[in-house]
């Protein structure tokens, strides 16, 4: 059923900017319009481009914040989240914990 939601209205996760917008809801309690505007500003994109997979694929590659297909050498997991924390200027608890221990 989550696939139906995704097809009808989902942002697209790490195919696009869904995870980034979600982070703004979790870390700053931003409503959807504010969260999208914040992320779009950080990425210097238009809000509608955040859900466009053709735009966001290149953006995610450029910032090295993780892409949905498996490509050797691209940041994955915690490394991608380290880049996201810097890019969005947000606290990511697991990233902070990693930094404290390395």
């Amino acid at each position: 059923m989550s696939l139906a939601h995704g097809a009808a209205a989902g942002m697209g996760g790490i195919r696009t900017a869904g995870d980034l917008v979600a982070r703004m809801q979790l870390t700053r309690k931003m409503r959807i319009a504010e969260a999208k505007a914040y992320v779009a500003d950080k990425l210097t994109l238009g809000v509608e481009e955040l859900s466009d997979v053709t735009v966001m694929r290149e953006v995610r590659e450029d910032y090295d914040i993780g892409i949905v297909t498996s490509v050797p050498g691209c940041a994955k997991g915690i490394k991608a989240k380290m880049h996201i924390a810097e890019l969005l200027d947000v606290n990511i608890n697991s990233v902070n914990r990693m930094k404290e221990r390395t």
């Binding site: 989550s2 995704g6 097809a7 009808a8 989902g10 996760g13 979600a22 959807i32 859900s51």
Partner: peptide
């Protein structure tokens, strides 16, 4: 059969029960 929001109106998804799906 399936309808969708206008481009630009997308929202984010969270998943109760998560992995149990």
């Amino acid at each position: 059969r399936v309808v969708g929001v206008q481009p630009g109106n997308e929202i984010v998804l969270s998943h109760d029960i998560g992995t149990l799906h």
